[in-house]
Deep mutational scan, measured.
Amino acid sequence: HNLTITQGKLFFHYNPKLCLSEIHKMEEVSGTKGRQERNDIALKTNGDQASCENELLKFSYIRTSFDKILLRWEPYWPPDFRDLLGFMLFYKEAPYQNVTEFDGQDACGSNSWTVVDIDPPLRSNDPKSQNHPGWLMRGLKPWTQYAIFVKTLVTFSDERRTYGAKSDIIYVQTDATNPSVPLDPISVSNSSSQIILKWKPPSDPNGNITHYLVFWERQAEDSELFELDYCLKGLKLPSRTWSPPFESEDSQKHNQSEYEDSAGECCSCPKTDSQILKELEESSFRKTFEDYLHNVVFVPRKTSSGTGAEDPRPSRKRRSLGDVGNVTVAVPTVAAFPNTSSTSVPTSPEEHRPFEKVVNKESLVISGLRHFTGYRIELQACNQDTPEERCSVAAYVSARTMPEAKADDIVGPVTHEIFENNVVHLMWQEPKEPNGLIVLYEVSYRRYGDEELHLCVSRKHFALERGCRLRGLSPGNYSVRIRATSLAGNGSWTEPTYFYVTDYLDVPSNIA
C-alpha cells in the first residue's frame, strides 16, 4: 500500500525493539523526510534493546553428524571492536523451508527459537588472519532439518551509529543413524509349514526405512522333555500350542467401542483428552525405555581390526524358502538304536541362519518350516543398504507352526516275539517326523474274553527296548493296539495285532 503524509511529521519514542533503520525507511515511504526535528525521533529510546544489523554474515563451514552440527561463519568486528559482546545463534526444527525470524513471537518477546549466546573469538592483530567464530550444536535429532541463523550482539553506541551483522536463515539436516526397533511384532501360524509375521514401523526411523531383515531359527525343545518319565503317576503330560491366527481386521481397528449394538453396526467412541494424553505418555515412556535398553543392555560386537582377528559373527547367506525346513542338525536320541526319531534339535552355532529381506511392506510369510516346531524370529529395521547396512537392534518374537495331521501315527506293522515265561516283546517304529517329539506310547492289549488293559511306555523305555515287553501273560489269544502321544496330543491307534500265548508248562520236552 502507498502511504503519503502531505502535512505533519513523524514522532517515535520509547520503541526499544524498533531499529532506527526501520524508522528511516518509514520517513522515505511516507514522504516526511526532512520535516522531523532532532528530538522527534529519539536516538536513545528507539532500538536500544534490539540488534540492528546492516551487514550480512556468511557461514564459512558446515559439518553434520547424526546428532551434531558444527558451524563456522566469517569474522565480524565493528569499528570499535570492544562493542562486540558476542553472537546469538538461533535454531529450531523446520520440516519445511518457510521459516521466518519472527515465527511464534508474542507480545512478551518470546519466540519459538532456541538461542545460544556465543563469546567472540580472540581478536588477531592481523586483519587478514582473524579467527572464524563458530559453535557445535549438540543433542539434535537424527535425520531432522533445522533452520539456523546467527547475528551479532553489540553494545549501545553513544554516537548512535547503527552497526551489526546478521546471516540469512539456512537449512541444515542432520545425518541418518540406526533406527529404533520395529514396533509390535506379531507372529502367527496359518499352516503346519508357515508363519505369518506382521509389525509396525519404528517410532524413530532416523532416516528413510529402506528394508527390513527377518531372521528365523528353529528352537530346540526343553531338555526336561527328553529326561522326564511322563508315565509316572502324578506327572502331567506336557503340551505345546501353536500360535493362533490373526483376529479379523475389524476387531483390530483402534479407537473402536468394545460393545456392539445388537441391531447392527455401531460407531466408534472418540477417545477423551485424558485417554489420548495417557497414550502419549505411555508411548514416550516406551521410547525412553527402549533407548535405555539399547544403550545399557546391548553391547556392540567388536569388529575385526587390522591384526587379522576374525569377526566372530557368522556370515549372512541367503537361502531359498524351500530350504528352511531342514535348518537344524538332527541327532538321534540314543545312538545305539537307529530307529528312534531325530527330534532332539541342538543347533550348531556355526550354522548360517536363513533370512529374508523385506522391502516396502511390514509383513512376511515364512514358508518351508517344520510342522509343530518353535521358531525364534528376529526382526531388524534398516535405513541404508549400501555401502553397508545400517540397521536397528533386533526385536524378537516366537511362534510355533501348526501340527501336521497323521504325523504322530505309527507307520509300519507292530511285530512281536514270544519268549519263555510268557513274555512277549512288542516292537514298532517311532514316527519319523512327529509333531514336536514323542513323549510316550500307549499300549492297549486284551486277552479274548477279558477286559482291555493299558500300559504306558516312556520315551526312554522305548529307546532301550525298541518297544516294550509284556510279562506274566496268561495263555490265550491276544490283540494289541499302540498309539503315540506327542507334544500336540495323541496320534491314531494302530491296526490290531494278534498273537497267541501258550502255557509254557505244557511245552513238550526233548528229553527222552
Rank of each mutant, 00 (worst) to 15 (best):
E442N: 01
F419Q: 15
K406W: 07
S444P: 01
C266P: 03
S392L: 00
Y441Q: 02
P238E: 03
V501A: 06
N490C: 09
N477I: 06
Y396K: 02
V501S: 06
L235P: 10
L473K: 01
I438P: 03
M427L: 07
E265Q: 13
L232D: 04
C267K: 03
V501L: 07
L213F: 10
V299I: 13
W242Q: 14
T494L: 04
L237P: 09
S304F: 14
D229N: 14
A263S: 12
R313F: 07
T303L: 05
S223N: 13
S320T: 13
Y212K: 00
W242P: 14
S257F: 10
E442Y: 02
V414F: 10
L237S: 06
L280R: 10
S341T: 07
E217K: 02
R218Y: 15
P431V: 05
E281Q: 12
E265A: 13
D409S: 14
V359W: 06
C468N: 03
F246Y: 10
S268P: 14
V439M: 05
D261L: 13
Y230N: 07
R301E: 10
R318G: 08
G234S: 12
L455K: 12
L293R: 02
S274I: 02
T415K: 11
E495L: 03
E430R: 01
R240H: 09
F337W: 08
Y445P: 02
Q256T: 12
Y478R: 00
H416K: 09
E451A: 05
G449N: 09
A399C: 04
S492Y: 03
G325F: 09
E404I: 10
Y448I: 13
V358M: 08
K406D: 10
C269Y: 03
N435P: 01
I276L: 06
D323L: 07
M402C: 11
G472P: 07
A336V: 15
E433S: 15
F355A: 08
G308F: 10
P300S: 10
Q429S: 14
G234F: 11
E388M: 05
S243Y: 09
P346T: 14
P238A: 03
Y448A: 08
D323K: 05
R483E: 00
T401D: 00
P332F: 04
A220M: 13
L487M: 14
D503N: 12
N339S: 11
P354W: 05
R483D: 00
S458Q: 10
S262F: 14
K302S: 07
G308S: 11
S398P: 08
N477G: 11
V329K: 07
D261H: 15
C391K: 05
G476Y: 00
H416L: 09
